[in-house]
Nucleic acid binder design. Structure first.
Length: 315
DNA sequence: GGCCAGGCGCGAC
DNA sequence: GTCGCGCATGGC
C-alpha cells in the first residue's frame, strides 16, 4: 500500500507556491509544520517546497493522467502549477490599488485544477465558509475516494464522476450538506453522463457552460467563473463574491448585481482580468478579512476515515 | 446568540 | 434583463 517516492527539482522564477496554494483557489492543499506544502491532485500525492528560484517536489507517482493526456511527473507539475506562464499584468498608472495588490501578490498563479473536482468543490462552496467546504470535500474523498499512503501519511483521492453519481440527494441530506444536496447530486449525475469515454478541455468547457445554463445545477455566475478560472484556462474570468463586491464598491465605486460587477471587471481588465481580480480580492481580504497566516492551518493529511460508509446506511 | 460565508434559483416586475 | 428574497449549515 505504501507508495514509492519520486523526487526532483523545478525551476520557478515567477511562481510563489505559498501565495498560490494558500490563496483559497484549492481546497485540498495545506502547509505542514515541516514547511512542505502537501496535497493531492489528479490522484497523485504531491509535496512541494519553495527554495528561492527552485521548487523541490516529492510525488507518489511518476506518471499522471490528466484531460490533456498522460504526463511525466515533472511535466505535470510544470503544467499544473503553470510554471511557464506568468503574464506581465499591465496596470493603468492611476490604478493604485491594483498596482499595490499586484506588487504584493506577484507570484500568485492559477493552478490547473481537475475540472470535475473543481466543479463539485465550487458547487459545495456556495454560501459556506472555506473551512466547512474543505470538510465536506474531505468527507467525500474519505468515503468514496481511493486511499493513498505516502511518506507515512494517508491521503484520499477525489472521487470520480462515476462514483459520485451513485449517490442521491438523500445521502447528502443525511450528511448535512443542506440545500447543496440536490445540486451536487444532479451535477455529478449530469457530468457522469456527459464524460463517458473521457473528456478533453473543450468537452469540459461545454459541460461547464451547459451546467451554468441548466437551472438547478448549482453553477451560477460566480461558480461558473471560478470553474473557468481555476480549471478551464479561461484567465479572463472574474468571479464576484462577497470580497469582490466590497472592493468594487469601496475602491472603485462600483455597485449593483454580481453580474454587473462581473461585466465591469471583465471589460475593465480584459484578457488577464482573472489575475487583476484575484490580486485585488486577495489584497482586500488580507487587509480586512482573515490573513493568509490565519487561513493556512497546519496540515492534517491523516483524518480518520468516516466510520459510516455511504452504502452502509445506519439510520 | 446573531451574523455571515469565494451565491443560487425563482418569482415579480 | 434585473431585483429581492428564502435557503441549510456550522464557524466565529
Amino acid at each position: 500500500m505504501a507508495m514509492h517516492c519520486f523526487e526532483g527539482m523545478l525551476e520557478s522564477t515567477s511562481v510563489d507556491i505559498g501565495l498560490t496554494l494558500g490563496s483559497g483557489q484549492v481546497f485540498r492543499w495545506g502547509r505542514d509544520v515541516d514547511g512542505w506544502w502537501k496535497g493531492i491532485a489528479y490522484g497523485v500525492v504531491v509535496h512541494l517546497r519553495q527554495m528561492g528560484d527552485q521548487i523541490q517536489y516529492r510525488a507518489s507517482s511518476e506518471r499522471v493522467a490528466t484531460y490533456c493526456g498522460e504526463m511525466a511527473i515533472d511535466d505535470f507539475l510544470r503544467w499544473y502549477l503553470r510554471l511557464d506562464h506568468m503574464p506581465r499584468i499591465r496596470v493603468p498608472r492611476e490604478d493604485t490599488y491594483l498596482r499595490r495588490a499586484r506588487d504584493l501578490l506577484k507570484g500568485l498563479q492559477f493552478v490547473r485544477q481537475d475540472p470535475f473536482e473543481c466543479i463539485i468543490s465550487y458547487v459545495l462552496s456556495v454560501q459556506a465558509h472555506m473551512s466547512l467546504t474543505k470538510k465536506r470535500i474531505g468527507f467525500l474523498a474519505r468515503t468514496l475516494g481511493e486511499r493513498r499512503v505516502f511518506e507515512g501519511e494517508t491521503y484520499w483521492t477525489f472521487p470520480g464522476a462515476d462514483a459520485l453519481s451513485e449517490l442521491d440527494s438523500g445521502f447528502y441530506r443525511r450528511h448535512r450538506f443542506g440545500w447543496r444536496s440536490e445540486r451536487v447530486a444532479e451535477t455529478a449525475q449530469f457530468i457522469a453522463g456527459a464524460v463517458r469515454g473521457g473528456a478533453d478541455l473543450d468537452t469540459w468547457r461545454c459541460i461547464s457552460d451547459d451546467l451554468h445554463a441548466l437551472s438547478g445545477s448549482g453553477v451560477g455566475i460566480k461558480v461558473a467563473r471560478c470553474i473557468d478560472l481555476f480549471s478551464l484556462d479561461r484567465l479572463y474570468a472574474v468571479p464576484v463574491d462577497t470580497w469582490v463586491r466590497k472592493f468594487a464598491r469601496e475602491w472603485y465605486g462600483v455597485t449593483g448585481s454580481d453580474a454587473k460587477i462581473c461585466r465591469w471587471g471583465e471589460a475593465r481588465w480584459g484578457k488577464w482580468a482573472g489575475y487583476c481580480n484575484e490580486y485585488l480580492f486577495a489584497y482586500y481580504r488580507e487587509l480586512y478579512g482573515p490573513t493568509l497566516y490565519d487561513r493556512v492551518l497546519s496540515f492534517n493529511a491523516s483524518d480518520e476515515a468516516s466510520a459510516v460508509m455511504p452504502f452502509e446506511e445506519q439510520v
